[in-house]
Amino acid sequence: MRKILHMDLDAFFASVEQLDNPELRGKPVIVGGRENRGVVSTCSYEARAFGIHSAMPGAVARRKCPHGIFVPVRYERYKEKSAEVREIYTNYSDQYETLGLDEAYLDVSHFADAVPIAKELKQRVKQETGLTCSIGLSYNKSLAKIASDLRKPDALVIIRPEEALSILENLPIGALHGIGKKSKEKLAQKEIYTVKDFWNLSRDEVIQMFGKFGYDLYDRARGEDKREIVMDRTVRSISRETTFPIDIYDRNDVASLAKELLEEGIQAVEKKNLKPRTLSLKIRYTDFTTHSKQRTAYDEVDWFVLLDDLIDSFDYTSGIRLISVRFSNFMEETDGSHYQQLSLSWEDENR
């Protein structure tokens, strides 16, 4: 039988801030959202008690928690702490899947008893990094993640095969990975609020509602998940974006900020030894409509020149609230080199 461990660092960004600044411990710390247009990256459990959550507009977070302590995002510092944790958990398995900076799956099937391993891993993360994590242990990825979410923070939850259905049936439908806000609303129309309610749907009905994903969702609701640990997640794109505190109407102001983002993006791709072919610029207007344009090159290129061309292709008279610069279409070392200039055209971001 497989033994899959899911580790999730508790309120990671906020926990790092409280670790580095002991005066913040036990207080409602909110990472990000400092500017009027900013959004919350994450927050401490003390802040979550006031209804604060990730992706919430900073202005809303301030209304809900006026005494909350807002701190800037320090991404480089979080990467440092994430690397410390990774150094620990990779000692326990050579089959691991890293998700972002704060989550990982490990296949620990090679241990006769994985429970002591999970306990030791939790203890080492706490002692060696100062951070707490929640760990779920089960026989597949879906249940391991559900287990790690059940009793946060600083939890260790085991779901054994004989317990799976009795645990699943009492969970809200949103506990299934892949069921978001819109899916919950769709299911609520059929009076489906729990996993047990979901069992009343046939496989065909689930597939009709969710398309191909319905096959997986139907199985996961019944404790079945055949997904393997994915060791190498191919980088498909690297992007940097910013939301302005006030709307911008001037092309030169946009250009100045876009070039700063481009510099950050260039540093990121060079650090990963990647060679992008395509540069994209995304613009979000005051009314929240979003468009992007791109250029592709197959030879040595000055990305700042291409960025200027992209900047010139947009109209700014209606006001801009967000811009994003993205590299994609990474080149293999064996690829030949030539240059191709593409015509610029509007491209709906959501297509």
Rank of each mutant, 00 (worst) to 15 (best):
K64Q: 12
C65D: 06
H67P: 01
G68A: 15
F70T: 01
R74W: 03
R74G: 00
R77K: 13
K79F: 10
E80Q: 12
E80F: 10
K81T: 02
A83S: 14
A83I: 09
E84D: 04
R86Q: 07
E87T: 07
E87Y: 02
Y89S: 10
N91C: 13
Y92Q: 02
D94S: 07
D94I: 06
E97F: 12
E97W: 10
E97T: 12
T98S: 09
L99Q: 12
G100K: 01
G100C: 02
L101S: 00
A104P: 08
A104Y: 09
Y105N: 05
Y105R: 03
Y105G: 01
D107N: 15
D107G: 12
V108Q: 15
S109T: 14
F111T: 03
F111E: 05
A112F: 10
D113L: 10
A114S: 11
A114R: 01
A114E: 00
A114W: 01
V115I: 15
I117K: 02
K119I: 06
K119E: 08
K119P: 00
E120N: 11
L121R: 10
Q123Y: 09
R124M: 10
K126S: 10
E128R: 06
T129S: 04
G130A: 14
C133T: 01
C133A: 02
S134Y: 13
L137Q: 10
N140A: 07
